[in-house]
Design a protein around this nucleic acid. Structure first.
Lengths: 130, 130
DNA sequence: CTACGACCTGGAGCGCGCTCCAGGTCAACA
DNA sequence: TGTTGACCTGGAGCGCGCTCCAGGTCGTAG
C-alpha cells in the first residue's frame, strides 16, 4: 500500500510542505515514486514519520533527530548510540514534565488568589505581582 | 533595595539583553533609574519577572504575556480576564504534560526494545522503524 | 483537445524570541 | 587626568522550523 503526499500528510498530521522539507534535510529517506514521479509513501515510511513526530513533540531539535536518522540508516551497529539518544531524551522529557508540574502549582496558586479576590475577600497583598 | 541590570539578570536567570528586550516590548514596566540614568530594579520588578519566567516556561507566547501585562497595568477591574488567561494556560499545561507523558511511554518502549536487541534476544521486527 | 488539479522543484520569506553590535555616556579608581 | 568597565540606545542579525511561491509537468474528466 502506497500513499500520496496528501494522504501521508493527513495521516501524519504534518503538512505537505513539511514532508518535503523533512526529506530535504534528510530526516526522511526519499520515498518511492510512482510512474509519474510523484512520491509514494510506504507503511514503513509512515511508521518512521510517526516516531519522528513523537520525538518532535518531546522537543527534540531537528539536528538531533537527523543524527538519529543517520545512525538508523547505518544499521544495527549503531543501536547503542541510538539507544543513548533515546535515554537522554527520556531524561530531558522527565525533567520537562517536572518543570511544567511546578509551573502548574504556581498557576493554581495564582488562580486561587484571583478567585478569593473576586469573592470579595480582598486580600490585596498579592495584587502587586499579580 | 534596588538592583542593577546585571544583578537583576543574575537573579532572574535572564540575560541583560533579554531584560531590555522585555522592557522594549512592554512586558516589563520601565524600572526606576539611578542618578546616572541606569536601570534600578525593585523587588516588585523582580517578583513580576519571576512570574513572567514561569509563564514563559509553560510555553506561553510573548504576545499573550503582553496581553496579561497590559491587563495588569489597568488594575483590579481586569482581574477576571487575567484569571481567565491563567485558567486557560493551566489547561494547556496539563494537556502538554499528558502529551509528554505519552511520549515518555513510547520512549520507554523503544529503549526496552533496544536493550533486548543488545542482549542478544534479536527481535528484529522492530528494527524497521527503530 | 483542453482545462483542471495534484504534484513537482529550487529557493525565498516568515514569525518567534532572543542576541549582538556600534557608538556613546558616566562614575570610580590609579 | 586618563583609562576602565558597567551601562545606555537604536537597530541589525540570527537560528529554528517551517511555509509559501513561481513556474513547470502529469494524467484524468468533460
Amino acid at each position: 500500500m502506497a500513499y500520496s503526499i496528501a494522504e501521508a500528510a493527513r495521516r501524519s498530521g504534518l503538512s505537505i510542505d513539511t514532508l518535503r522539507y523533512y526529506e530535504r534535510i534528510k530526516l526522511l529517506d526519499p520515498p518511492a515514486r510512482d510512474s509519474a514521479g510523484r512520491r509514494a509513501y510506504s507503511e514503513t515510511d509512515l511508521a518512521w514519520l510517526q516516531f519522528l513526530t513523537k520525538l518532535r513533540t518531546t522537543g527534540m531539535p531537528i539536528r538531533r533527530m537527523r543524527e538519529y536518522a543517520t545512525l538508523r540508516r547505518r544499521g544495527a551497529a549503531t543501536a547503542g548510540r541510538r539507544r543513548a539518544i533515546l535515554v537522554e531524551q527520556r531524561r530531558s522529557v522527565a525533567e520537562r514534565i517536572a518543570e511544567l508540574q511546578s509551573c502548574l502549582d504556581v498557576l493554581d496558586y495564582k488562580i486561587t488568589n484571583y478567585e478569593r479576590l473576586e469573592h470579595g475577600h480582598a486580600a490585596g497583598i498579592q495584587e502587586a505581582s499579580a
